[in-house]
Nucleic acid binder design. Structure first.
Lengths: 222, 222
DNA sequence: AACAATAGTATTGTTGACAATATGAATAAA
DNA sequence: TTTATTCATATTGTCAACAATACTATTGTT
């Protein structure tokens, strides 16, 4: 009866954690900038106690770095670090895609197709190109990781790594590469999922992400 | 000049975080048990402020789960969750081993051989069998992940996942499987590293970890 | 002018007190 | 006996004040 009331119960530290996290990944809190406790506590209308707990959670997500007696600053990713993240992502999403191939139902695959169709429409529309790069691409990957059935994998990828990637994209204001190519690859991946071809699904996904990684590496070599 | 003094500077929250973490992975704080703030703050002689920050860091490591207005409890892993972790570990250590194969120097490989030789001696000694299983095995993997050169990968595996595995082993008091087999596989892996054979190194490492994973899966099917 | 020392300010670290919520026991009703 | 209800207690959430440290600007010296 009061379950609905219980649901909206949440602590100040948690809500302000969400707020600051979105502020960071949106770039409203600039990468490398200092996290000023008195200022933020005023801004969000809370005391420093719960704010510091929120900052510690952000530290756990690797979104801020804390130096004792100095404070926290918003993390700033350089190219090498971004490549490191892509290496991890390639490996883990390959795993996720393999697991998804063994577990996804026909209905799940249909949902993926619908998702891609929606994105196609968005692309055809005016500023769709931007939309697709910013959010749509992640939606696809998000859903596949969910289909893997590995909850911990989902939490790590969707609760931590993706936020870091969004941060990097905002930081470098990179909305790049190869939307039509990526699109084709997405469909190939769903094909493999439909056929329950685990090996192929993993290979295609790894190759898909490796493409984005190589774009970064080329940037590194100028 | 005062750099040595600076080194010992650390916050209460950080030191007590270390203490509680080791208490958890050693099993001194039982899995599933409640984390009582007044009790712990008394036990460690600090106030609840920094203690709560430490708990939030533990939440970030997935070692405790926090429910608003109820509190934190030490995480308790069931078999399914342990398998999820092993799936992730297999994927990531495969990656680490591949990277290590491309980067490890001859000197690095020598260090690995020495490590294995030391473990052999330990095994031959009385209670060595136990030692090897508990720490020695992780040392080997630890070093390879370090050789991968991917700092983020290192932090995730060695700063989070390994602690969870130790927790599970303590929880199920499992000091199991196939030390002599594992030993042989370790040497094969170093062979591949010496030959800079990235593919083989990755495959061997994944197979090595998959063995432990399958042991768990068999437990699941009884 | 450049560098070192120092004083003042701002920020972080820590604490104890208070408010809000949950837990558990005792009582009352079915 | 079992189920609700109420009350007392314990624990968590939040706050504001104090202590300790780091940062900044000024001064003084070479």
């Amino acid at each position: 009866m009061d379950s609905q009331i219980r649901l909206k119960t949440s602590t100040l530290a948690d809500t302000v954690f969400d707020q600051i996290r979105t502020a960071i990944v949106k770039g409203e809190l600039a990468p490398g900038s200092k996290v000023n406790e008195p200022q933020l506590s005023k801004q969000y209308g809370i005391s420093r106690g719960p704010l510091r707990e929120a900052i510690r959670r952000l530290e756990g997500c690797k979104l801020v770095e804390i130096t004792p007696n100095v404070g926290a600053k918003v993390v700033s990713l350089n190219l090498e670090q971004a490549i490191e993240i892509y290496e991890i992502r390639e490996s883990l999403e390959g795993l996720a895609c393999r697991l998804a191939a063994s577990r996804a139902s026909a209905d799940d695959c249909l949902k993926l197709r619908e998702l891609l169709a929606n994105h196609e429409k968005q692309i055809e529309s005016e500023n769709g190109r931007l939309y697709y790069q910013k959010e749509g691409d992640l939606d696809f990957h998000y859903l596949i990781v969910q289909l893997s059935g590995n909850t911990r994998l989902f939490n790590f990828l969707c609760g931590e790594l993706y936020h870091l990637l969004r941060l990097y994209r905002v930081q470098t204001s990179s909305g790049p590469s190869r939307p039509e190519q990526a699109f084709k690859e997405h469909h190939q991946i769903v094909d493999a999922l439909e056929n329950q071809d685990e090996e192929l699904a993993e290979i295609l996904m790894k190759r898909h992400i490796s493409g984005a990684k190589n774009t970064l590496i080329n940037q590194l070599n100028q």
